[in-house]
């Protein structure tokens, strides 16, 4: 069963002077159980709009979506997930501990479990020392961590996180990555939006790229990485063999000991055969590929 099932989701906003803006133009997306899905896109592409539709905060103009089989907008559709809004704000007169207890109660957690889980998540997100202080005194990163804590307290099967890394310092980001990887290990599903490709590459199974309200790419990270191989960097020892035989390949770099060749994927076998014939010693082979960042930029560029 898919944990998220989006079909033909459209959202049209009516702006000032009755101008219509199509924020989402028919999104189709299915997230499987246990999948970590990265939702990439530049600012204003429709990431948050999609998530708000899923959470029932706004109403889609057309199309349907279901979370764990429950139609979006219903209370039941939100009952088994943990949701982190973008730049979250929580009742700032409450302490982190009080807020977590409040969230747990809305999920109808039994009292003993709630107390135990609140303590666990507060410790996990390094909020333990601040737990008795009202959140109005928290830094942005602390609020973001409260946001993560409140998604985890009831240990849901699906996490919907809107920009979970924003506002966090490198240590915080690493913490979040670890948490997501841990969730993955435990078979949980995570749907998170970001505009930072690095985050995606490290933790995601699958990526979707949204540009101007349309899903421009949808593939597994593995595939993207494989498709992205452009060729190899082959390092050879200058003092050994006949390098003239390899004249058909571009020299990328040279110094007194080594010559480095750039070898396209199609020419790799030929290169290796020639090198063998002419006693060229290959000291290192390195895969040359586009990273996710350029993949992303390419798609965004195409969409423009």
């Amino acid at each position: 069963m898919n944990v998220i099932d989006i079909t033909g989701l459209c959202k049209q906003f009516t702006g000032k002077r009755m101008t219509k803006v199509d924020a989402l133009k028919g999104i189709d997306l299915k997230i499987a159980q246990g999948e970590i899905f990265g939702f990439l896109g530049p600012n204003g592409a429709g990431k948050s709009t999609t998530i708000k539709c899923l959470m029932g905060l706004i109403r889609p103009t057309a199309g349907t979506a279901a979370i764990m089989g429950e139609q979006i907008g219903s209370v039941a559709s939100r009952a088994k997930i943990g949701f982190l809004p973008e730049n979250p704000a929580f009742y700032d007169y409450l302490t982190a501990e009080e807020y977590l207890r409040f969230v747990g109660k809305t999920f109808k957690m039994p009292e003993a479990l709630l107390t135990r889980r609140a303590d666990e998540t507060l410790k996990q997100l390094e909020l333990w020392d601040a737990r008795k202080r009202p959140m109005r005194g928290y830094s942005k990163g602390m609020v973001q961590r409260v946001g993560l804590a409140q998604t985890m307290i009831h240990d849901p099967d699906l996490y919907i996180l809107d920009e979970p890394m924003s506002g966090l310092d490198p240590i915080g980001r690493a913490l979040v990555k670890d948490i997501i990887l841990d969730l993955k290990k435990r078979g949980k599903s995570v749907f998170f939006s970001t505009h930072i490709t690095d985050d995606v590459e490290k933790v995601c199974d699958r990526v979707g790229v949204i540009v101007k309200g349309q899903l421009e790419a949808l593939d597994s990270v593995e595939n993207i990485v494989r498709q992205g191989i452009e060729g190899y960097m082959v390092q050879t020892r200058l003092s050994r063999g006949n390098h003239e035989a390899l004249g058909g390949f571009a020299v990328a770099r040279t110094n007194e000991t080594f010559i480095e060749y750039f070898v396209p994927v199609a020419g790799f076998n030929e290169f290796m055969a020639l090198a063998g014939q002419h006693s060229v010693e290959v000291t290192l082979v390195e895969t040359k590929r586009k990273d996710l960042e350029s993949f992303f930029l390419e798609i965004v560029g195409k969409g423009k």
Binding site: K52, M55, G56, L57, V75, A76, R78, A79, F83, P85, E86, N87, P88, A89, F90, Y91, D92, V103, T106, F107, G147, Q150
Partner: peptide, 14 residues
């Protein structure tokens, strides 16, 4: 105004 609604209405509350 303070965006509390996003977090609260994302909870299973009608």
């Amino acid at each position: 105004e303070r965006r509390y609604t996003f977090s609260v209405l994302g909870l299973p509350l009608s």
